[in-house]
């Protein structure tokens, strides 16, 4: 009875409610995070575990395959940011105007790709980027008079295919983010700007873009993370973690190959922690540059 009264008291109840999170946080976040940090200083063999100090990290410094993976992930991230912020933003502004008719239909169509699993979209793109002249992309380049390409065997076109999968899947979603950001802008601002004689471009530049900033920062943040951590898209396009000359190898792909395929948990952990460091640094720099921290201090 006493226990019951204790558990039902107003002071204890909130802790009962948040208990699942505390447990999950300890078991599935803090523990694995610490264990991956520990493992990154170890060599984990089937029979014994050896402390090797910084050996794994030193190896990463001279591991050219890893460097290739980092470069690939960075290129992919930068390209997806360049394509998946300005265009969806422009589409959202267009979509928000009264010029566009039947908005619901177009929004539904643009959103469709996000519903398909990466397995299905990856398979479709793998087959579209087929090196045969009858593959869809080669049909298109054929019509344009560019000849045929071995899309998934060359670095530049392979990266293009990866970026295309990403744009195909997320353009509509990012547009929705910007649309909901536009909804929160106060119309009175545009009216007063109009009275002051501002042009359409000035209004876009000095009202729309600054007030969309929270949305832009959000989209940028998730794009940085998703871009750096991309793996399954590449896995599907090349039907596995291996690609010719590692043209489709990403950081997480390398982590998977080392940690899971080759069962080198120590080395794989080091790869993961380097990725985490890169992601955090980029994100913090991005948030400082965009002034997000300053705003919260007020």
């Amino acid at each position: 009875m006493k226990i019951r009264k204790f558990l039902y008291s107003q002071r204890v109840a909130p802790y009962v409610f948040v208990l699942p999170f505390i447990l999950s946080f300890c078991f599935f976040w803090i523990y694995p995070l610490c264990s991956t940090i520990v493992m990154s200083f170890q060599d984990i063999l089937p029979t014994r575990t050896e402390w090797v100090g910084l050996k794994n990290y030193k190896k990463l410094l001279i591991d050219t395959t890893f460097h290739q993976a980092v470069i690939n992930s960075f290129q992919y991230m930068l390209l997806t940011i360049l394509l998946l912020i300005p265009f969806p933003m422009a589409f959202a502004v267009m979509m928000d105007s009264r010029l566009v008719k039947a908005k619901g239909v177009w929004k539904a169509f643009l959103y469709l790709p996000a519903l398909t699993s990466v397995v299905i979209s990856g398979t479709l793109f793998r087959l579209m980027f087929s090196e045969y002249s009858t593959g869809q992309l080669n049909v298109i380049t054929g019509i344009l008079g560019l000849g045929t390409f071995k899309w998934l065997k060359v670095k530049a076109t392979g990266l293009f295919a990866l970026v295309m999968v990403c744009c195909w899947r997320w353009t509509g979603v990012n547009m929705l983010y910007f649309l909901s950001g536009l909804k929160s802008i106060d119309g009175a601002l545009y009216e007063s700007a109009e009275i002051d004689g501002a042009s359409a471009i000035q209004k876009f530049r000095f009202i729309t873009i600054p007030l969309l900033k929270p949305t832009t920062i959000y989209v940028l943040t998730i794009s940085i993370y998703a871009g750096l951590a991309m793996f399954m898209e590449s896995y599907m396009l090349w039907a596995g973690p291996d690609s010719p000359n590692n043209i489709g190898l990403t950081i997480v792909g390398y982590l998977y190959k080392r940690g899971i395929t080759k069962n080198q948990l120590g080395y794989g952990s080091a790869v993961g922690l380097v990725l985490l460091a890169i992601a955090l640094v980029i994100n913090v720099v991005q948030l400082i540059l965009s002034g997000t921290f300053k705003k919260e201090e007020k």
């Binding site: 946080f25 976040w29 523990y31 750096l228 982590l255 940690g259 952990s269 985490l276 994100n283």
Partner: peptide, 21 residues
């Protein structure tokens, strides 16, 4: 704050230790 912090670490990084766990 901890809820937000867990969002800052991509799942892919915890994949290996979670697999082992």
């Amino acid at each position: 704050f901890l809820v937000i912090a867990t969002m800052m670490v991509p799942f892919e990084i915890l994949m290996l230790p979670l697999y082992k766990e």
